[in-house]
């Protein structure tokens, strides 16, 4: 990783009431590389994605785009930079048809009027390339199957010619063939020089396409592993926190004694501090 990162998160924290969803997250995203983001349910992956996408604003920390700090306060800000996001909940408008959803917020216009024909033609082209069968691009997305909806959401991320594509569990609802298509697509995007952030619970998928794996555990960084040099077990250990050992426990305890405990909510404190350093040491 000699090149400067395209997108970098430095010490990003996000808190929801009593839940510290993200604490002090560092992450670097490089052009032409696929970064997988893994972690257990509730680890904070989607929260991190939404922070990058401008759905949430970070409580602390900075987001750097091409080396310069940017404030991402709204989804527009993120899109304007060139970040396209596929959300876990897809964020589609059920009452609009496929074409309208694909182009929502950036409709093709000619003389100020919606150019439905151009949009529909491009939409069919794109869906063809993703080899998904949809009854018609003119039916409301409410009437599509879960997987079809997911492909629509993915296709939507590709419309705006982004530089970073963030995919939050894009293959969760997909069949074998469509999953393969999406993984192919991820590789295609990497070859085109785009940066891809891929969230998935499927280790096989992650190992197949990712260059490095960033592990989140209970809202904290738990190590970044180059896929080629890391075993499956090591990653799983980092996810579950089994990488915990006596050394990290002791260092955690000294940290707490010094009063440098970064988290304030007492209940989860113990568990979180223990795993803070684990990843870095494994890596």
């Amino acid at each position: 990783m000699t090149t400067a990162p395209l997108l970098a998160l430095r010490g990003v924290s996000k808190r929801f009431g009593a839940v510290q969803a993200l604490s002090d997250i560092d992450l670097e995203i490089h052009a032409g590389r696929v970064t997988a983001l893994v972690g257990d349910n509730g680890a904070g992956k989607s929260t991190l994605v939404k922070t990058i996408a401008g759905v949430y604003t970070a409580d602390a920390g900075t987001i750097e785009w091409k080396g310069r700090a940017h404030r991402i306060a709204r989804p527009q800000d993120s899109q304007d930079l060139g970040i396209a996001t596929v959300y876990q909940d897809l964020a589609l408008c059920d009452n609009l048809d496929v074409v309208a959803n694909l182009y929502l917020g950036r409709e093709t216009r000619s003389l100020g009027v919606l150019d439905e024909v151009a949009m529909e033609a491009r939409c069919r082209e794109l869906l063809d390339s993703l080899s998904i069968r949809i009854p018609s691009v003119r039916i409301p997305v409410a009437s599509l199957s879960g997987g079809q909806r997911q492909v629509v959401a993915i296709a939507r991320a590709l419309i705006g010619e982004p530089e970073v594509v963030v995919l939050d569990e894009p293959t969760a609802a997909l069949g074998v063939e469509q999953t393969a298509q999406v993984l192919d697509l991820v590789e295609l995007l990497r070859r085109r020089g785009l940066a891809v952030v891929l969230i998935s619970h499927n280790m096989a998928d992650v190992r197949a396409v990712a260059d490095e794996v960033a592990v989140l555990r209970l809202g904290r960084n738990n190590g970044i592993f180059p896929v080629a040099e890391t075993s499956h077990e090591e990653i799983v250990a980092a996810i579950t926190g089994a990488a915990d050992n006596a050394v990290t426990r002791r260092s955690a305890r000294t940290l707490t004694k010094d009063g440098a405990a970064p988290s304030t909510d007492a209940a989860a404190d113990d568990d979180r501090n223990r795993t803070t350093e684990a990843g870095e040491e494994t890596a």
Partner: peptide, 16 residues
């Protein structure tokens, strides 16, 4: 229409 259908999705699509 987008705001009426799903305001949060509309917001995430960059609509004011």
């Amino acid at each position: 229409f987008a705001v009426g259908g799903n305001a949060e999705a509309a917001r995430r699509a960059g609509i004011n």
